[in-house]
Protein backbone atom coordinates (compact mmCIF):
# COMPACT_ATOMS: atom_id res chain seq x y z
CA UNK A 1 0.00 0.00 0.00
CA UNK A 2 1.34 3.42 -0.89
CA UNK A 3 1.93 5.72 2.02
CA UNK A 4 -0.10 8.87 2.27
CA UNK A 5 3.11 10.87 2.07
CA UNK A 6 4.08 9.08 -1.15
CA UNK A 7 0.63 9.65 -2.62
CA UNK A 8 0.82 13.35 -1.78
CA UNK A 9 4.13 13.72 -3.63
CA UNK A 10 2.78 11.75 -6.60
CA UNK A 11 -0.20 14.01 -6.83
CA UNK A 12 2.02 17.11 -6.83
CA UNK A 13 4.27 15.61 -9.48
CA UNK A 14 1.26 15.01 -11.69
CA UNK A 15 0.33 18.64 -11.21
CA UNK A 16 3.97 19.55 -11.95
CA UNK A 17 4.50 21.53 -8.79
CA UNK A 18 6.31 21.38 -5.48
CA UNK A 19 4.47 20.02 -2.49
CA UNK A 20 3.69 22.66 0.10
CA UNK A 21 4.57 21.55 3.58
CA UNK A 22 3.62 23.61 6.59
CA UNK A 23 4.96 23.50 10.12
CA UNK A 24 3.01 24.63 13.14
CA UNK A 25 3.39 23.74 16.79
CA UNK A 26 0.78 21.57 18.50
CA UNK A 27 -0.96 23.54 21.20
CA UNK A 28 0.01 26.97 19.88
CA UNK A 29 -1.53 28.75 21.55
CA UNK A 30 -4.18 26.25 22.74
CA UNK A 31 -5.14 22.73 21.78
CA UNK A 32 -8.30 23.93 20.08
CA UNK A 33 -6.68 26.75 18.21
CA UNK A 34 -3.88 24.63 16.86
CA UNK A 35 -6.42 22.09 15.65
CA UNK A 36 -8.43 24.83 13.98
CA UNK A 37 -5.27 26.09 12.31
CA UNK A 38 -4.43 22.61 11.04
CA UNK A 39 -7.91 22.18 9.63
CA UNK A 40 -7.78 25.56 7.92
CA UNK A 41 -4.36 25.23 6.32
CA UNK A 42 -4.85 21.63 5.26
CA UNK A 43 -7.06 22.92 2.44
CA UNK A 44 -3.94 24.31 0.76
CA UNK A 45 -0.99 22.41 2.20
CA UNK A 46 -0.06 19.00 0.84
CA UNK A 47 1.68 17.73 3.93
CA UNK A 48 1.45 19.04 7.49
CA UNK A 49 4.26 19.05 9.96
CA UNK A 50 3.18 19.33 13.55
CA UNK A 51 5.78 20.20 16.16
CA UNK A 52 5.57 18.60 19.59
CA UNK A 53 7.09 21.29 21.74
CA UNK A 54 10.23 20.98 23.83
CA UNK A 55 11.49 23.69 26.15
CA UNK A 56 15.18 23.36 25.23
CA UNK A 57 15.10 23.34 21.43
CA UNK A 58 18.72 23.71 20.31
CA UNK A 59 18.02 24.02 16.59
CA UNK A 60 15.10 26.42 16.60
CA UNK A 61 15.09 30.15 16.15
CA UNK A 62 12.97 32.72 17.94
CA UNK A 63 9.63 32.17 16.20
CA UNK A 64 9.38 28.42 16.80
CA UNK A 65 10.74 28.88 20.31
CA UNK A 66 7.92 31.36 20.84
CA UNK A 67 5.29 28.95 19.54
CA UNK A 68 6.64 26.16 21.74
CA UNK A 69 6.68 28.45 24.73
CA UNK A 70 3.05 29.47 24.21
CA UNK A 71 1.99 25.86 23.85
CA UNK A 72 3.87 24.67 26.91
CA UNK A 73 2.65 27.58 28.96
CA UNK A 74 -0.87 26.43 28.22
CA UNK A 75 0.05 23.01 29.54
CA UNK A 76 0.33 20.99 26.34
CA UNK A 77 1.38 17.38 26.91
CA UNK A 78 2.30 14.65 24.49
CA UNK A 79 -1.08 12.98 24.97
CA UNK A 80 -2.71 16.26 23.91
CA UNK A 81 -0.57 16.33 20.78
CA UNK A 82 -1.73 12.86 19.84
CA UNK A 83 -5.30 13.88 20.52
CA UNK A 84 -4.95 16.84 18.18
CA UNK A 85 -3.61 14.51 15.50
CA UNK A 86 -6.45 12.06 16.05
CA UNK A 87 -9.10 14.73 15.80
CA UNK A 88 -7.49 16.22 12.73
CA UNK A 89 -7.25 12.83 11.05
CA UNK A 90 -10.89 12.11 11.72
CA UNK A 91 -11.80 15.06 9.49
CA UNK A 92 -8.91 14.70 7.04
CA UNK A 93 -8.06 11.02 6.87
CA UNK A 94 -5.97 11.28 3.73
CA UNK A 95 -3.90 14.33 4.56
CA UNK A 96 -0.40 13.23 5.58
CA UNK A 97 0.81 14.51 8.94
CA UNK A 98 4.39 14.41 10.17
CA UNK A 99 5.27 15.01 13.80
CA UNK A 100 8.47 16.88 14.44
CA UNK A 101 10.42 17.42 17.64
CA UNK A 102 13.31 16.53 19.90
CA UNK A 103 14.33 13.08 21.01
CA UNK A 104 14.11 13.50 24.78
CA UNK A 105 10.32 13.41 24.68
CA UNK A 106 10.40 10.13 22.80
CA UNK A 107 13.12 8.82 25.09
CA UNK A 108 11.05 9.58 28.20
CA UNK A 109 7.89 8.16 26.70
CA UNK A 110 9.73 5.07 25.48
CA UNK A 111 10.31 4.51 21.77
CA UNK A 112 7.80 1.69 21.42
CA UNK A 113 5.07 3.39 23.35
CA UNK A 114 5.63 6.59 21.40
CA UNK A 115 5.34 4.77 18.09
CA UNK A 116 2.22 2.93 19.23
CA UNK A 117 0.66 6.28 20.03
CA UNK A 118 1.74 7.63 16.64
CA UNK A 119 0.12 4.69 14.92
CA UNK A 120 -3.07 4.90 16.94
CA UNK A 121 -3.55 8.57 16.24
CA UNK A 122 -2.66 8.40 12.56
CA UNK A 123 0.78 10.02 12.38
CA UNK A 124 2.35 9.37 8.97
CA UNK A 125 5.92 10.39 9.61
CA UNK A 126 8.47 11.69 12.10
CA UNK A 127 11.28 14.22 12.01
CA UNK A 128 13.57 14.10 15.01
CA UNK A 129 15.86 17.09 15.01
CA UNK A 130 18.55 15.82 17.36
CA UNK A 131 18.73 12.16 16.43
CA UNK A 132 21.10 12.19 13.48
CA UNK A 133 22.31 9.36 11.28
CA UNK A 134 23.67 6.75 12.09
CA UNK A 135 22.44 7.02 15.68
CA UNK A 136 18.88 7.00 14.33
CA UNK A 137 19.18 3.73 12.40
CA UNK A 138 17.57 1.56 15.04
CA UNK A 139 14.70 3.94 15.63
CA UNK A 140 14.20 4.49 11.90
CA UNK A 141 13.87 0.75 11.42
CA UNK A 142 11.25 0.61 14.16
CA UNK A 143 9.35 3.35 12.36
CA UNK A 144 9.49 1.49 9.08
CA UNK A 145 8.06 -1.62 10.71
CA UNK A 146 5.10 0.44 11.77
CA UNK A 147 4.83 2.06 8.31
CA UNK A 148 5.77 5.41 9.75
CA UNK A 149 8.05 7.48 7.56
CA UNK A 150 11.30 8.44 9.32
CA UNK A 151 12.50 11.58 7.58
CA UNK A 152 16.29 11.85 7.40
CA UNK A 153 17.88 15.28 7.31
CA UNK A 154 20.69 16.53 5.11
CA UNK A 155 22.48 19.84 5.43
CA UNK A 156 25.04 21.88 3.51
CA UNK A 157 27.70 20.47 5.86
CA UNK A 158 26.81 16.84 5.07
CA UNK A 159 29.74 15.28 3.20
CA UNK A 160 29.19 13.37 -0.04
CA UNK A 161 30.00 9.98 1.42
CA UNK A 162 27.71 10.58 4.34
CA UNK A 163 24.98 11.84 2.05
CA UNK A 164 25.06 8.65 0.01
CA UNK A 165 24.83 6.53 3.15
CA UNK A 166 21.94 8.52 4.55
CA UNK A 167 20.03 8.48 1.27
CA UNK A 168 20.55 4.75 0.95
CA UNK A 169 19.03 4.17 4.39
CA UNK A 170 16.29 6.76 4.02
CA UNK A 171 12.62 6.13 3.45
CA UNK A 172 10.56 8.04 0.88
CA UNK A 173 11.14 11.60 1.99
CA UNK A 174 14.31 13.53 2.85
CA UNK A 175 14.55 16.97 4.36
CA UNK A 176 17.31 19.21 3.04
CA UNK A 177 18.29 22.07 5.35
CA UNK A 178 18.90 24.98 3.00
CA UNK A 179 21.64 26.73 4.93
CA UNK A 180 23.65 26.88 8.15
CA UNK A 181 21.01 28.27 10.43
CA UNK A 182 18.46 27.58 13.07
CA UNK A 183 14.86 27.59 11.88
CA UNK A 184 13.55 30.99 10.88
CA UNK A 185 16.85 32.49 9.84
CA UNK A 186 17.02 34.86 6.92
CA UNK A 187 17.91 33.08 3.70
CA UNK A 188 21.63 33.81 3.46
CA UNK A 189 22.43 31.52 0.56
CA UNK A 190 21.28 32.25 -3.00
CA UNK A 191 18.34 30.14 -4.19
CA UNK A 192 20.50 29.14 -7.13
CA UNK A 193 23.07 27.59 -4.81
CA UNK A 194 20.37 25.82 -2.81
CA UNK A 195 18.87 24.34 -5.97
CA UNK A 196 22.35 23.24 -7.06
CA UNK A 197 22.77 21.32 -3.79
CA UNK A 198 19.26 19.97 -4.15
CA UNK A 199 20.05 18.65 -7.60
CA UNK A 200 23.20 17.02 -6.31
CA UNK A 201 21.04 15.05 -3.87
CA UNK A 202 18.52 14.19 -6.58
CA UNK A 203 21.31 12.83 -8.77
CA UNK A 204 22.24 10.35 -6.04
CA UNK A 205 18.72 9.00 -5.99
CA UNK A 206 16.05 10.49 -8.16
CA UNK A 207 13.24 8.50 -6.57
CA UNK A 208 13.45 10.09 -3.14
CA UNK A 209 11.26 13.06 -2.43
CA UNK A 210 13.55 15.87 -1.36
CA UNK A 211 12.00 18.80 0.44
CA UNK A 212 13.81 22.00 1.28
CA UNK A 213 13.30 23.87 4.52
CA UNK A 214 14.76 26.72 6.63
CA UNK A 215 14.51 30.34 5.55
CA UNK A 216 11.51 29.81 3.29
CA UNK A 217 8.87 32.54 3.32
CA UNK A 218 6.38 34.02 0.87
CA UNK A 219 9.28 36.09 -0.44
CA UNK A 220 11.67 33.23 -1.17
CA UNK A 221 9.36 30.31 -1.91
CA UNK A 222 8.85 30.83 -5.63
CA UNK A 223 12.60 30.87 -6.31
CA UNK A 224 12.85 27.31 -4.97
CA UNK A 225 9.73 25.84 -6.54
CA UNK A 226 11.73 23.33 -8.54
CA UNK A 227 12.06 21.15 -5.45
CA UNK A 228 9.84 18.17 -4.70
CA UNK A 229 8.59 20.01 -1.66
CA UNK A 230 9.06 23.18 0.34
CA UNK A 231 8.61 23.66 4.06
CA UNK A 232 7.37 26.88 5.61
CA UNK A 233 7.45 27.01 9.40
CA UNK A 234 8.76 30.05 11.21
CA UNK A 235 6.78 32.45 9.05
CA UNK A 236 3.59 30.69 10.07
CA UNK A 237 4.59 30.75 13.73
CA UNK A 238 5.23 34.44 13.40
CA UNK A 239 1.83 35.00 11.86
CA UNK A 240 0.24 33.14 14.76
CA UNK A 241 2.12 35.34 17.22
CA UNK A 242 0.96 38.46 15.39
CA UNK A 243 -2.63 37.26 15.24
CA UNK A 244 -2.62 36.67 18.97
CA UNK A 245 -1.14 40.06 19.60
CA UNK A 246 -3.71 41.79 17.41
CA UNK A 247 -6.58 39.62 18.60
CA UNK A 248 -7.25 38.21 15.18
CA UNK A 249 -8.49 34.73 14.39
CA UNK A 250 -5.22 32.86 13.83
CA UNK A 251 -6.88 30.07 11.82
CA UNK A 252 -8.36 32.57 9.40
CA UNK A 253 -5.11 34.47 9.07
CA UNK A 254 -3.12 31.29 8.46
CA UNK A 255 -5.68 30.05 5.95
CA UNK A 256 -4.95 33.10 3.87
CA UNK A 257 -1.19 33.01 4.34
CA UNK A 258 -0.92 29.38 3.30
CA UNK A 259 -3.27 29.96 0.37
CA UNK A 260 -0.93 32.70 -0.85
CA UNK A 261 2.14 30.52 -0.37
CA UNK A 262 0.51 27.85 -2.47
CA UNK A 263 -0.28 30.31 -5.25
CA UNK A 264 3.38 31.21 -5.46
CA UNK A 265 4.48 27.69 -6.32
CA UNK A 266 1.74 26.72 -8.74
Amino acid sequence: MRSKIGIAFEKCKKEKRAALITYTVAGDNTKNNSLKILNAISKHADILELGFPHNTPIADGGQIQGSSYRALKNGIKLTDVFQIVKKFKRLNPNKPLIMMGYFNLIFQSGENRFLRNCKASGVDGLIIVDLPYPENKKFARKCKKKSIEFVQLLSPTTSNIRMKKIIKDSHEMIYYISMLSTTGGKLKVSPKKIIQNYEKIKRINNKKNIVIGFGITNKTISSLKKADGLVVGSQLCKKIANSLKNRLNAAKVLDKVVYNLKRKII
Partner: peptide, 19 residues
Protein backbone atom coordinates in the same frame (compact mmCIF):
# COMPACT_ATOMS: atom_id res chain seq x y z
CA UNK B 1 28.40 5.91 19.73
CA UNK B 2 30.42 7.98 22.22
CA UNK B 3 28.36 6.68 25.12
CA UNK B 4 29.88 6.06 28.56
CA UNK B 5 28.68 2.90 30.23
CA UNK B 6 26.37 2.47 27.22
CA UNK B 7 24.09 5.04 28.79
CA UNK B 8 25.58 8.53 29.09
CA UNK B 9 26.87 11.05 26.58
CA UNK B 10 26.65 10.55 22.83
CA UNK B 11 26.01 13.14 20.17
CA UNK B 12 22.34 14.09 20.01
CA UNK B 13 22.83 16.94 17.61
CA UNK B 14 21.24 18.45 14.51
CA UNK B 15 22.61 17.18 11.20
CA UNK B 16 24.30 20.53 10.50
CA UNK B 17 26.65 20.04 13.45
CA UNK B 18 27.69 16.49 12.52
CA UNK B 19 30.46 17.62 10.22
Amino acid sequence: NFMYGGKFGGNFIPETLKK
